[in-house]
Amino acid sequence: MTYLSPLGYLLGIEGAALLRGFREGSADRAFVESRIAEIRALLDTPALTRADGVTASPGTISTADVYRDWAPRYDEPGNQMIDVEQPVVRQILDGLPLGTALDAACGTGRHTAYLHGLGHQVIGVDASPDMLARARRRLPDVDFHEADLRRLPLPDNAVDTVVCALALTHVPDLTPVLSEFARVLRPGGNLVISDAHLLVSYLRPTPARGPGPDGRPSLLDEYHRPLSAYLAAALPLGFQVRRCEEPRRPRHSLDPGDAPVPLPASLSWDLLHWCPEASAAALDDSPVAVVWHFQREDRGAGQPDPVT
Rank of each mutant, 00 (worst) to 15 (best):
A234T: 12
L254Y: 02
C244T: 14
D270G: 06
R242Q: 06
P262A: 01
G210C: 07
L267E: 03
A196E: 11
A229Q: 11
G188M: 06
L227N: 13
P262Q: 00
R216G: 09
F239T: 04
L220P: 04
P247K: 14
L203F: 10
L203S: 10
P205D: 01
H197R: 02
G210V: 06
P226I: 00
A196N: 12
D195W: 08
S266G: 14
L199S: 07
H273L: 07
A208F: 02
A233Q: 15
C244M: 14
S253R: 11
L227S: 15
P260D: 04
Y230H: 10
G257T: 03
P247F: 13
L271K: 04
S228Q: 11
S218E: 02
L237E: 07
P260K: 03
V192A: 01
P207S: 03
S194R: 00
F239S: 09
E222G: 07
Y223N: 05
S266A: 10
P264S: 00
Y202S: 15
V192W: 00
R225F: 03
L199Q: 09
G210A: 10
Q240L: 13
R243C: 14
L199R: 10
H252D: 11
P217N: 02
T206E: 08
A265Y: 02
L263S: 04
L199I: 12
G189M: 04
G189S: 05
P211H: 10
R216H: 07
L237I: 05
A259P: 00
E222N: 06
L199G: 09
E245Y: 11
H197A: 01
T206S: 12
L271P: 02
R209I: 06
L271Q: 01
P262H: 04
R249L: 15
A232D: 14
R249H: 12
Y230N: 08
R251V: 09
P213Q: 03
P217Q: 05
D214G: 09
L199V: 14
G238S: 13
Y202K: 14
L267W: 03
A196W: 14
L254D: 05
D258A: 11
L263T: 01
R204H: 14
L203P: 12
P211K: 07
D255Y: 03
P211T: 08
I193Q: 03
N190W: 14
D214S: 10
A229H: 14
W269I: 15
P250K: 12
P226Q: 04
A196G: 15
Y230C: 09
